[in-house]
């Protein structure tokens, strides 16, 4: 397997690289101290495995994963012994290693990555199936006061997180629903909607203009988080 290492700490990169040299199953083809450089590399090159630090300034490991359309296998590295459960929400994550990483534990993770290749090497099909499923529907039903109200995807402008609720702003009306951004994101077609901030999902086709750190949709100025900005820029049909 060829792999890359992404970690802002030279010590962490050195340890992983040295461990890789002791394994015949994995070869380091590149190392990066930030996620942005790695994204540029991955736009041109394919890799089998990524060693990815979760906590990096500006752009976390999880932000990075979200920019990848078909992520390769990923082994997370972290200094947290009490590791965040969030990691298990991503199918591409094979294992996680707590720093400093010892060789026996490293080799076990490599073994897991190899088994992962044998059993689940075709993530493209299920991913495509999910997208197709999302594209099938043109609307969404929300439950308000025991009534199921139909909302056309095309009429949605913005969805804003508000504590335990979300505010769905459409061209005609606004709806407050007891749900989370994560739940509604799963129901929305990826071709139309994009999360640009931890509190905002927008209908990509409703953007009027974009300034440095905000987008204008209808009369609302929505902030773009630094970590989501690259994803947004990637989606734009720039002249």
């Amino acid at each position: 397997m060829n792999c890359i290492i992404i970690d802002d700490e030279a010590l962490a990169r050195s340890i992983i690289r040295n461990h890789c040299e002791k394994s015949t199953d994995v070869e380091v083809v590149a190392q990066f101290e930030n996620a942005i450089s790695a994204i540029k590399y991955l736009n041109q090159n394919e890799v089998d495995l990524i060693f990815l630090d979760i906590h990096m300034p500006d752009f976390t490991g999880f932000d990075f994963i979200q920019t990848l359309k078909s992520p390769p296998k990923i082994i997370l590295t972290t200094s947290d012994r009490n590791f965040a459960i969030e990691a298990f929400e991503y199918d591409c994550i094979v294992d996680y290693l707590v720093k400093p990483v010892g060789l026996p534990r490293f080799l076990k993770a490599i073994q897991k990555a190899q088994q992962f290749s044998l059993t689940s090497k075709e993530p493209a099909a299920p991913a495509a199936a999910t997208e197709a499923k999302q594209e099938e529907g043109k609307d969404l039903y929300i439950n308000i006061d025991r009534r199921l109200i139909k909302i056309d995807f095309d009429s949605i402008l913005i969805i804003e997180a508000k504590g335990d609720y979300i505010l769905i702003k459409t061209e005609g009306k606004n709806y407050t629903v007891h749900s989370t951004l994560k739940k509604i994101e799963e129901k929305l077609p990826e071709s139309k909607f994009l999360k640009i901030h931890r509190s905002y999902v927008i209908n990509f086709h409703k953007i009027i203009d974009i300034e440095d750190n905000s987008v204008l949709i209808a009369k609302d100025v929505i902030p773009i988080s630094r970590s989501n900005r690259p994803i947004l820029m990637k989606r734009l049909n720039l002249l």
């Binding site: 802002d8 700490e9 010590l11 962490a12 906590h55 300034p57 200094s79 947290d80 720093k99 400093p100």
Partner: peptide
């Protein structure tokens, strides 16, 4: 928040 990130990074050195 940034300071917390710095402490987080230093944890690796403390551990090692």
């Amino acid at each position: 928040l940034k300071t917390a990130g710095d402490v987080h990074k230093l944890k690796h050195k403390i551990s090692i």
